[in-house]
Simulated scan of single mutants.
Amino acid sequence: MSVSARFSAEALELARKLGTSTLFEASGLPTSAVDPAVRPVWAGASVAGSAYPVECAPGDNLAIHVAMEKAPRGSILVVATGGFVAGYWGEVLTVAAEASGVAGLVIDGGVRDIAALTARRFPVFTRGISVRGTIKASVPSVGRTISFTGTPVATGDLVVADDDGVIVIPAAQAEATLAKGQARADKEAIMMQQLSEGRSTLELLSLAQWSQR
């Protein structure tokens, strides 16, 4: 995967290792998690990188084609469509993305050519699948801050996506969130070792009083 210009390879590797669930809890930002209806096209897909926000008119994917020429290498396209499900993205754009260094796609609309996307192992997270084609007539927004299913997304924000969902962390809070995420993961590793030794979650989470009720 190409390295996002804003984040180091080490930071992105850590983000993927920690995963969305841990980083969401570490962020303390309720709006960092996008609509859970946005799901990976293929099981096991994961990606981390800098956001490149795009807004499409319903049923119109011209803005995506423009974004492919402008997005820095290593970017993840975050595409708002107003939830209109159509085939905004398929195998042709996937091949173009791989050639241009785009690392992945998060879209609240739809995609198609699922077999090809799966075979190429290109990370795509989408609201739905649709064979319906799109027109190319307008470019509402490319590279400017958007609201993606209620989550603010600006160019350069940290996007992490995996089987559990998609989160977007503001760039200014990414480093602190990764540090808190690592601390949380370390704490959970100790807890899981203690659980394997026979201790209970009620005990470890200081909830033992509830066992008496």
Rank of each mutant, 00 (worst) to 15 (best):
F84H: 15
G87N: 14
G87H: 13
W89T: 12
G90S: 14
V92Y: 09
V92K: 15
L93G: 15
T94R: 14
T94G: 15
A96W: 06
A96T: 09
A97S: 15
A97P: 13
S100M: 13
S100N: 14
G104H: 06
L105S: 07
G109I: 10
G110F: 07
D113H: 11
D113K: 04
D113L: 07
D113F: 04
D113M: 06
I114G: 09
A115N: 12
A115C: 06
L117V: 00
T118G: 13
R120G: 13
R121H: 09
F122V: 03
P123E: 09
P123K: 10
F125G: 00
T126W: 00
R127H: 03
R127K: 02
G128Q: 07
G128Y: 04
I129S: 10
I129T: 07
S130F: 06
S130A: 07
S130E: 13
V131N: 15
V131L: 13
R132D: 15
G133Q: 03
T134N: 09
T134F: 08
I135D: 06
K136P: 02
K136C: 11
K136L: 15
V139L: 06
V139H: 04
V139G: 02
S141V: 00
I146W: 02
S147D: 05
F148R: 11
G150A: 01
G150Y: 02
P152K: 01
P152Q: 02
V153D: 11
T155S: 15
T155Y: 09
L158Q: 08
V159I: 09
V160F: 02
D162K: 04
D164G: 08
I167S: 03
I167R: 10
V168D: 03
V168G: 07
I169H: 02
P170T: 13
P170I: 12
Q173H: 11
Q173K: 12
E175D: 11
K180G: 13
G181W: 11
